[in-house]
Amino acid sequence: MTPRFNPGERVRVLDKFTAGHVRTPRYIRGKRGVVERICGEFRKPEELAYGRYAGEREPLYRVRFAQCEVWPDYVGAAEDTLDVEIYEHWLEKTEDKR
């Protein structure tokens, strides 16, 4: 699978609710960040958790978020960041500079 996003691109984490096992923390859903690096291809945790190993591998990214984007009342420096690993099917492109 060719990665859909490149390092430096702005992305938004999908703000959706899914039942069952996921590895996308609730606090980061809907937040915007920048792709820091492509980590390689891995199986979806949503499938692995239920013993399904046959699924395709998909790109995993490290996405860097400004802390003040994640927590509007964040106490700390404006430059402080939070890096989170997100699978491609949880990301969409965004132009929003916020």
Binding site: R23, C39, F42, P45, G76, A77, T81, L82, V84
Partner: peptide, 30 residues
């Protein structure tokens, strides 16, 4: 993830305001 500077201070590590804090949440395979 929410208040890293306060957590670090409780560990005895007081960071100057000018130093950037970068938190890494190992959510997946890394």
């Amino acid at each position: 993830i929410r208040e890293p500077r306060a957590v670090l201070a409780e560990f005895g590590l007081h960071l100057p305001a000018g130093m950037t804090v970068r938190v890494h949440d190992s959510t997946a395979d890394m």
